[in-house]
Structures are given as C-alpha cells and as structure tokens.
Design a protein around this nucleic acid. Structure first.
Lengths: 254, 254
DNA sequence: AGATATTTGTTCGTATGTATT
DNA sequence: TAATACATACGAACAAATATC
C-alpha cells in the first residue's frame, strides 16, 4: 500500500512546499513566536502537515533563504526563528529591481524627500557612542580629488557616512529605506562608473556639511539638521544628474 | 605539521544550497539573462555544480521563494527567470519587520515625505486609462460612517485609491515604497482594529481631496497636486496619531 | 576524552501528475 | 490517444554536526 502523494486538497494548483511554508508562518504569528524560539523538528512538521521530509525541507529552505529561520544540527538543535538582517532584506529587495533598475535620478527623488527627515529625526537623540561612530565614518578630504579613482573613493566614503546615519535612525523603517537607497547607489557606482572625472565643484558645497550636520544634531536643532541635509541632497542630486547626462546613456543600466 | 582545525576555505561554513543559489544568480547577471529566459535543466545544474538533485532543488526552491524563478512542468518546461512581482517583494519586506513592526506614526513619517512627491510626479503624466482606473478606485461617501465597520471599510478603500496612484507612479521605486507603506497600514488595520469609532472629522477635510487631486493631475499642475496630497497626508497622520493614542497601547503590536 | 544520541544535511532511487508533441 | 520530458513528491539511507553522559 503506497501513501497517496496527492491528498484531496481543494487548491491542487498550489505547490506543497508553498503551502507548508505558509502554514509555518501562520504558526509563528498565531503562537506569537519570537526570534530565537525553536520550531518543531522536521519529523514533527512531517507528521503535522502529512508531508514527506523533502517537502518539509523545501519549505524550511525557502524560509531559510528569506533569512527567517536558521538551523542548527545536533541534539538541542533544530530550526530557530531569526530576525531578518537589514542587509539581507536590502539585497533581496535589490533583486526585485534587477531587471528594471531605477535611474540615479529616481533614487535621488527619494533621498531628497527622506534623508532630511532622517536628519531631523536624529537631532538630539544620539549618545556619545553614536557620535563616535559618525566621526569615525566622517572623512574630510583636505585635497580635492585629483583622479577619477579618488573621486570615486570619496563618493563611496560619503555614502558610508550616510549609512551610519541610517543605522542610527530611531525610525527603523525610515533608516531601512535610506540605507537601501544608499546600497543601490553603491552598486550602481561600482557597475556604471558614474564618477568619471574628478569634480571639485560638489566638494566645495559639501566639504563641511558633515560638520555642520553633526553640530546641529548635537545641539538638537532638528530644523537646522533638516536644512543642512536638504541642501546637501539637492546639490548632490543635481551633480549626479549632470554626471548621468554625460555618461554614455543606456550603458549597462546596472 | 597538523592541519589547522579551521578549514582553509572561508566558505566552508556555508551551506550547499546557498552556494548553489549564489552561483545561479551570478550566472544570471554574467550571461545577462532576462525574465522569461530559461535556466539550464536540473540535470545540467547538477552536473555544473557537482551537486545532487536535492541540493539543486533546494537552491531553486530558495530562488523560487524569492519569486526570482518560476517553474513550468511539461516538455519545454523548466526553470524560467521571472521579474519579482511587487506584491511578493512587499510581502517579503514585511516579513523583515514582523518581529519589530514600525508604529503607525513611523509609517506616516514616510508617507508625508513621499506621497506628495508621488502626486507631483504623476501630474500631467496620466492617460485616459489611468484616470479611468483612478476614478474606479475613488469612493466618495455621501454619508459619514455610522459604524466602526463603515469607518474601517472607508479607510481601506482610501488606501486602495492611494495604491492605484502608487502603481501608476512613473518612478517605480517611489511607487513601490509608497505601495509598501500602504500594505503595512492595511495589515495593521486588520490586526489592530485601529479604527475603533466612526469619526466624521477627518472625512470633512478629506472628503473631496480625491477630486481636487485628480483635477490637479489632469491639468498637469504638479505643485497643486503636491499641495493637496501634503495637506491630506498631514491631516491623516494627526488623525492616526490620535487614534493610536486612544487605542490600548502595546496591544498586539501587529 | 570518548561514546552515544539527536537533529539537520546530503544523496539516491522511485513513483506520479501534467503539459507538450 | 500515446509517448515523452519535466517537475513534484515520497521514502530510505547515510553523513555531518553537536549536544550530553
């Protein structure tokens, strides 16, 4: 007697593994499980869902690929819930745009709207450790970039400074979106080489904006922080727009 | 000399399926594959990566869970690249915040910053079909909500109207983020029942903003569209803030 | 330190459903 | 309709990791 591989499911169209991962997710929210909590062992899941080990494993594998669970072998091991790391979520989100990547201008449309808000939200809410991190990420280039390589490195370093701000943002959703935009710009910079020529112009306006920003954040002046960031963002946006126009259009959109 | 306890390969810890899905992704970008293109059959992948069927399947399952590939049965079937559907990406992104969901106020901080930009970007860029869709999603309630159920339904319908705007947004990144914020609000509304009591107050200010918005969009007046949306967003935000304060605090954060 | 038990990780073989030809 | 090719699913076995005794 062979076990029927296809139970009389009403939704025969859906795949077994998808159903199982759905039900596991439901189980998580219903039981209010938290990161670190352990899920039932594979054997038990097999019994509960009347599925083979392979199907259960494929479902778990899908969740694991999402970063929602981690597995450990050995006794006391098993499948454990895990908070999804922001970096992983950003990578996955980037995959959603691989075939149709946004332009630099489109990314900056969001940065202009969001990063000033982020700066305002940070004002007066940072402790000494946070300022230490920010100052560590701060780079004040005394010399203007002489080569395209230097220009490139300076732009990347500036993105890193903004990413520290994003990590510190008390509104984690806002911080996540800003961090994601910065990640996109980093990848595009690597692939498109948008920073062709050294360009001292942006540097003049941006040179000490980091200092001005930190000062406003320390004093707790949200409006000033917002203003500094807004100024810097629109300067960077128009600079990037000009760069994008000069770059060979349609060249390796990603 | 004994072999070091740590294997020389820094990747020795990584699981087989993760390595395989990484390499498949690399293959995609290297060969410049597009949605609809077919990946090598499982057998070929098994040969190329020197892995068993199960491992290859788990890797593909992971990609499939991400929505990056779809499988079709039958001859000529196989694994095909697929553009990730926005709805799927939003769901996955939502999973990244399950254990630490943002508050309504945090979501609105982003909506206030972004949706006016979205409105401005849409001005003068919609065709007749788009306006038909928007008018189809438009609900002008002649009667103020009498019950909590009605209030609830009206808020959801309003979110739907905004989601149509997001889908039409020429800046797809901006549209995606706005759509995601609306999805989060929808889920939270379902779980938290934040709309407890009917409240005609918001309705008075918001009653005909949809008409004013559509008019500005038709004329192509970006500034007017931005203004209408900004006004509506801040009204909705302060309304939600009051609702959130009245709702039992910390009740089922999700 | 070593044996053992427990749990996931990997591989193989096989059967079945389904869509194309 | 029948043959075919592929994905889907099941089951069994062994390997690897990691606790506890």
């Amino acid at each position: 007697m062979t076990a029927p591989p296809d139970p009389p499911s009403p939704l025969a169209k859906r795949r077994r593994r998808d159903l199982i991962s759905e039900r596991i997710k439901e189980m998580v929210v219903e039981q209010g499980l938290r990161p670190g909590d352990r899920l039932p062992a594979e054997r038990e899941l097999m019994a509960r869902f009347a599925a083979s080990r392979g199907s259960v494993r494929e479902a778990l594998s899908a969740l694991s690929a999402q970063g929602l669970v981690r597995t450990r072998t050995g006794p006391g091991g098993g499948v454990f819930l895990s908070a999804i790391e922001p970096a992983r979520a950003m990578a996955a989100l980037g995959d959603a745009f691989v075939f149709d990547p946004p332009s630099v201008a489109e990314i900056y449309a969001l940065r202009i709207a969001l990063e000033p808000e982020m700066a305002a939200a940070l004002a007066g809410r940072l402790d000494a450790a946070a300022f230490a991190r920010l100052e560590g990420a701060m780079r004040l280039y005394d010399a203007p970039p002489e080569t395209a390589e230097e220009e490139f490195a300076q732009r990347l370093a500036e993105l890193d400074f903004h990413s520290v701000l994003a990590e510190l943002c008390p509104n984690r959703l806002l911080g996540f979106v800003c961090g994601f935009l910065q990640t996109m710009l980093r990848e595009m910079a690597l692939c498109r080489r948008i920073y062709d020529a050294p360009n001292p112009e942006l540097r003049d306006t941006a040179l000490h904006y980091q200092i001005r920003l930190l000062r406003a954040l320390k004093v707790g002046d949200a409006e000033a922080a917002r203003g500094v960031m807004a100024e810097h963002m629109s300067a960077a946006a128009s600079y990037m727009a000009r760069m994008e126009a000069e770059t060979a259009p349609g060249f390796l959109r990603r």
